[in-house]
Design a protein around this nucleic acid. Structure first.
Lengths: 202, 202
DNA sequence: GTCTATAGCCTGATAGAC
DNA sequence: GTCTATCAGGCTATAGAC
């Protein structure tokens, strides 16, 4: 493993390449289905050389997950209590949908982890994620109290947004098997916009 | 493997026990993460004995998937073109939600397969599933033409129902990490009912 | 039909030369 | 820092006794 000095340009570049390759492999095959050999060859390194940068397969996976969690929650973080309620929520939804389009590997990385019971990020869920959601639910509830949006169960509102938007990344094969050549997001964007506009109009 | 005679009671019972154990293990760990040893011990058999009933790990997995696909699609199949449109759709949604509550293992089995690109059931998706969805989309479109329900993209309507209802089974850990002791389905049921009632009211 | 024992492969990780 | 070679453990599947 690299010494505790400041990383060189090459070290930085290699670590980044490894993490990108690992994202490819872990998101496509899950933790158990991924092999270090696959990640190494996709990163253009030998297996021992990869293990010079990360001490173990698990360490790569952990580094990936914790590095991406912040990115993944950024859209919800950005929900602004001082903005216009309906526009804030609809903008959040479109941001999430855009992330499914642009970062499907990240979505599937978390999906793989969650479907199997989140053995490696359970703490982050019940601490960081719960805290974030709780804080945003307070804002949503206030908006409902003020009559700015219709009253619905705020937690299930958030769950539904996650479910709907991430579906297009996580179950991409299924969506494409049914839609054929049609771009899923072209139809999804107006659909979810209409859906939540109708649901939340007071 | 058993001879080509009619299976005895013991053979039937053992095959059923193996498939149930396999459902537990595959749904929790994915195909690659599951081991034959785990399945055997959960079924109360030795590993070679299990492989007397099924020729390989893959054969168990395939038998499971193809056996459950019909069960999984039954709710959509039951959507009746002669019923009341709004009530038919809302009933379909409640049936799907109930399946997430009662058959979460089945949901996660398919989720595991789909997130990883459906390598083992791709054909079933673009043939059987697509045909079923196409046929139901015709019914939905007719209802929209007749002004019985609001006009929305029929394919995305179906995707949204899948996403919303299966989310509670597939990402159960996440939902529970946030809701704590509250029963997810208690809130989900009225939420999705309201959501689609508002969306589809003409 | 069911078991113990084991073959044979794959995979994560390390040793050691350069 | 990077490689070749290799070990050690775990896995699927089979052989063969009962």
């Amino acid at each position: 493993m690299p010494k505790d000095r400041a990383p060189t340009r090459i070290q930085k570049k290699n670590r980044a390449m490894i993490l990108d390759a690992a994202l490819n492999v872990f998101s496509a095959h899950g933790f158990r289905g991924a092999t270090v050999d696959q990640i190494a060859s996709e990163a253009g390194l030998s297996k021992p050389n990869l293990l010079y940068y990360f001490p173990s397969k698990e360490a790569i996976h952990t580094a990936l997950l914790s590095g991406l969690l912040e990115v993944w929650l950024a859209p919800l973080h950005a929900l602004d209590e001082n903005g216009d309620p309906m526009e804030e929520i609809l903008a959040y939804i479109q941001r999430k949908l855009q992330m499914s389009r642009e970062l499907p590997r990240e979505s599937r990385l978390f999906a793989n982890e969650l479907v199997q019971g989140a053995p490696r990020i359970h703490a982050a869920l019940s601490e960081d994620l719960k805290a974030l959601v709780d804080s945003k639910v307070i804002i949503l509830t206030r908006w409902m109290d003020q009559g700015k949006i219709a009253r619905v169960h705020p937690y299930h509102l958030i769950f539904s947004i996650w479910a709907l938007t991430q579906h297009y990344a996580d179950f991409d094969v299924q969506v494409r098997a049914i839609l054929g050549d049609e771009d899923p997001f072209e139809g999804a964007e107006p659909f979810v916009d209409l859906l939540y506009r109708k649901l939340l109009t007071p």
